[in-house]
Design a protein around this nucleic acid. Structure first.
Lengths: 98, 98
DNA sequence: ACTTACCGTAAGCCATGAGTTACTCTGCTT
DNA sequence: AAGCAGAGTAACTCATGGCTTACGGTAAGT
């Protein structure tokens, strides 16, 4: 039931950049914010949204907070999308036969 | 490159309801709007967003406009999500070994 | 202990977008 | 052709949310 939160989270372009940056591997907040066109507090707020959507997990390393991609939210989103896949293909097939 | 538009489109709860309603099959605008807590013009605007995101196709049947789910946008979104799947599983695996 | 690095939270501003009503247009029907 | 059904567009209102600055809090270094 959390796919909705994932969709809202990934709808924002800045949050997508953050998420895509974490594709290479786990990063601390400062490293994520570096190069982004927004302030570090803004990044913190985005990370909170992504985390609460189940798309990221947070671990502590001293004063640093390490964020990494979480398969939980990603899996729920994928499952939701797959519900539509069959129907979409049927429509495509029916359309092609015309 | 259109997965971003799909994410924005599906982030709205009303548009998700519309999209989910079309899972059963193609529908006209009036039929879609029926039962939804918003006005019909609002539904028209949502349909436009979903269509431009590549998530829906529109066909004409007399005065009616029939909308149905389009595999195009759905596929692009799925492909984008799959990019993160491997990384997410690695993170999960590394986490489980601890 | 004091400072510095690292990060989350609070409060406020402002633009975006979802909704409404009113209007227009097109295509049947009689 | 006149009226009606079905649907898109325009103009406007208003709330949501993304961004900023300022502040507070914890952990490591000297």
């Amino acid at each position: 039931m959390s796919y909705s939160a994932s969709l809202v989270a990934l709808a924002d372009p800045t949050r997508r950049k953050i998420f895509e940056r974490l594709r290479r591997g786990p990063l601390a907040v400062g490293a994520i914010a570096e190069g982004l066109p927004v302030s570090r507090p803004a990044v913190s707020q985005h990370l909170k949204v992504l985390k609460e959507a189940g798309l990221l997990t947070e671990t502590q390393d001293g004063a640093r907070r390490i964020y990494r991609i979480d398969p939980e939210g990603l899996g729920q989103l994928r499952a939701w999308l797959d519900q539509f896949w069959d129907v979409a293909l049927e429509n495509f097939k029916a359309d092609a036969e015309k």
